[in-house]
Amino acid sequence: MVTTVPRVEFIASTAPEMPDCFVSIVGPDAPTMVAIHGISRNAAEIATRFSQHPAFAGVNVIAPLFDAARFGKYQQLRTLKEGQTASDVALFCLLDHLAAQHGINTGKVAVFGFSGGAQMAHRLAILRPSRIRAVCAAAAGWYLLPVLDLPYPYGLGQGCPAAWDRDATLRIPMTVIVGSRDTRVDESVRQDRLIVAHQGTNRLRRARIWTQVMRKHAAQCEDSESISLITLENGSHDFGQCARETELLNFVSAALHF
């Protein structure tokens, strides 16, 4: 019987500061993509969809699983309780571990995130640019604005875990994707006063505002990379639906230069 796609495997965490993950490793010379789940924590599904798609046939896919108990605020690179490890530190710990175990190159990785995963992905580009090669943030609920007069996690002001290296961030190709049907404002779309005031009420509006802000910064940076916004026709706020029924995975492939 024929099964042609690479296998996705679950790898359990071996340390409290490292998340579990689902991986599809195709080889040490292959480029590596990190794919980050949203609040449903569907890491297995995300790893499977990418590994099955022809555009990612030659890509090592790593989908970390940020469990609620250890990584409760993973989207914001923050911790829920004192003594826990922030998700960015945990991710890089995992990447180093996988590099040592499998010989894959995880020095600079392409990052995709959906919903809460997209929040983490774009925050990595802003706050941890040295490990990021390209970013594709799909269906983020809201964004980290590169302004100093808003406290973290809304802006880079009070409580921000790192100083912003603007030029390093803008040298990362960034693509923001939002489904054309992802405009519903339900309980999953945060309506904090600071978010609504600076970014609007729905995901599509917020994506447009964030890309405009980032493009203004890019205009002041000589060697900036592109910042793209794609409205995904027929896309809803459901990764599975977007993967099955829209061009999402093709757009991600192009965005991350695979």
């Binding site: 495997e9 679950f10 689902f22 890491a43 297995a44 469990d67």
Partner: peptide, 11 residues
């Protein structure tokens, strides 16, 4: 949905 994937996708 999370626990079952850890079981099913074990190496």
């Amino acid at each position: 949905p999370v626990a079952v994937t850890k079981i099913v996708f074990r190496q």
